[in-house]
């Protein structure tokens, strides 16, 4: 794949026909981004945290029932409702369109979490990093990502640290990051069914740019005008997707 031209616009496509709802992406994300796990009590309270979740919607009545799985992560909107309301600029959209969350700047008002129609921002109710990781398990923490302190919102960054790593490597080799394949978030990397695609939407040759033009492509809550950079592909029909 060619090198990116101009500023890349990183995007993701999720093929719901491939997705089996296995949640490998969820666990991979939690492992990669040091997202803490919850206790049974807090999980029951709705306080478990994940930057990507597999949402299941069951509709219909027996025997005509259908369950749909939908991996839901930060849609990295071009017009993000969460960014508009943040009082301190802790949530902002960076030049490449990734919606970042700057933890030392966040005051924990949770306004962004309420403004986000996708429910993808998580709040640190407790001092997770201090006592929720047993010493043994702290060994598996990723040094590229911080341990979020209590009282701040956290969210998906498309594994921005991976982008930086790829960019460093490319810079040393005197080139730009390839528009596809070189920088991949943990969820996309892990997907056993290869239902997730990632790349530069600005490069028309990337798989993801092609998928975005597919007849199966749709965006979540498109009517809100948030302009997500995560594209979903409808279930149940064949379409010419580029080879893996």
């Amino acid at each position: 794949m060619a090198e990116a031209k101009g500023t890349p616009r990183w995007g993701m496509a999720i093929d719901l026909d491939r997705c089996t709802g296995c949640q490998a992406c969820v666990v991979a994300c939690k492992q990669e981004n040091n997202v803490p796990f919850s206790s049974p009590e807090e999980a029951a309270y709705g306080r478990e945290m994940a930057w990507i979740r597999v949402m299941a919607i069951t509709e219909g009545e027996y025997p005509k029932v259908k369950t749909r799985y939908l991996p839901m992560l930060c849609q990295q909107c071009d017009n993000p409702p969460s960014v508009k309301v943040c009082p301190t600029g802790a949530t902002y959209k960076n030049p490449e369109g990734i919606v970042g969350q700057i933890y030392p700047r966040c005051i924990g008002c949770r306004y962004c979490a309420n403004a986000c129609p996708y429910q993808v921002k998580d709040f640190n109710w407790y001092n997770w990093s201090g006592f929720r990781w047993p010493q043994e398990m702290r060994q598996s923490l990723n040094p590229d990502v911080s341990l979020r302190p209590r009282g701040v919102i956290e969210k998906c960054t498309f594994c921005h640290h991976r982008l930086q790593k790829a960019r460093d490597q490319a810079a040393i080799e005197g080139r730009k990051v390839k528009s596809e394949g070189e920088y991949v978030p943990a969820c996309v990397q892990s997907c056993p069914a290869q239902a997730m695609f990632f790349g530069d939407l600005n490069d028309p040759e990337t798989t993801i740019a092609k998928l975005a033009r597919s007849s199966r492509a749709f965006k979540m809550l498109d009517e809100l005008g948030t302009e997500p950079k995560v594209i979903y592909l409808k279930e149940g029909e064949w379409s010419a997707t580029p080879r893996e």
Binding site: I98, G100, Q101, I102, R105, D144, Q164
Partner: peptide
């Protein structure tokens, strides 16, 4: 000077 370049 992108914030997320240094804070994550």
């Amino acid at each position: 000077v992108d914030c997320v370049a240094c804070h994550k």
